[in-house]
Deep mutational scan, measured.
Amino acid sequence: ATNIVGKVKWYNSTKNAGFIEQDNGGKDVFVHKSAVDAAGLHSLEEGQDVIFDLEEKQGKAYAVNLRIK
C-alpha cells in the first residue's frame, strides 16, 4: 500500500524504532531508523503527521518512503 496517512504513536531514538498509527484505523505500523534516515530526518516526534508506504517482510508490516505531511 502507498501514501498511507498516519501519526507517530511513539518513536524511541535510543532503540531506533517506533510505531505509526494509521489514520484509516489499520494496525499500527513499525518504523525503523533506516526509514527515518532515508527521509533525511533525525528523529520523529509523537503526534507528528506522516505519509508512508507499507512494505511487508517476513509477514510484518514496515513503514518505508516516509515523509512529513
Rank of each mutant, 00 (worst) to 15 (best):
V64T: 10
Q48V: 10
S34G: 08
N65W: 02
K33F: 09
A17Q: 14
I20S: 01
S43R: 12
E46Y: 12
D53T: 04
K33V: 08
I4Y: 07
L66M: 03
V29E: 00
E55L: 13
L44A: 01
N65K: 06
D53N: 05
K15T: 10
T2V: 13
G25A: 06
D23H: 14
A17K: 09
I4R: 12
K33N: 04
I68R: 06
K9T: 03
Y11A: 03
T14D: 11
N12I: 07
I51C: 08
T2G: 06
S43D: 11
E56M: 14
V50S: 00
I51K: 04
N65Q: 04
K69S: 11
K7D: 00
K60S: 06
H32R: 07
G40I: 03
E55H: 11
N16Y: 10
G25H: 08
G25L: 06
K27D: 10
S34M: 10
E21A: 15
D28G: 09
A38H: 08
N65V: 02
S34E: 08
L66C: 02
E46D: 09
D53E: 04
N24C: 11
I51H: 04
A1K: 14
D53I: 03
K57T: 10
Q58D: 15
E56K: 11
A39Y: 03
Y62F: 11
L66R: 00
K7P: 00
G26Y: 08
H42P: 12
V64Y: 05
D28A: 09
E46F: 11
H32Q: 07
A63F: 02
V36W: 04
D23Y: 15
Y11S: 03
V64Q: 04
F19N: 03
Q48N: 05
Y11F: 09
K60G: 06
W10M: 05
A35L: 03
F52C: 01
K27H: 10
A39F: 03
N12W: 08
E56I: 15
Y11C: 04
W10D: 02
L41I: 09
V36Y: 02
V8W: 07
F19V: 12
F30E: 05
A38N: 07
L41W: 11
N12H: 08
G40A: 05
A1T: 13
D23R: 15
F30D: 02
A17Y: 15
D49A: 15
D28I: 11
K33D: 02
A63N: 01
E56P: 03
K60D: 05
V64R: 05
L41H: 06
R67K: 08
V8T: 02
E56F: 15
I20A: 01
G26L: 09
A17F: 15
E45W: 15
G6Y: 02
L41P: 02
K9M: 04
N65H: 08
E45Y: 15
Y11H: 02
D23G: 14
Y11V: 09
F30K: 04
N24H: 10
K9G: 02
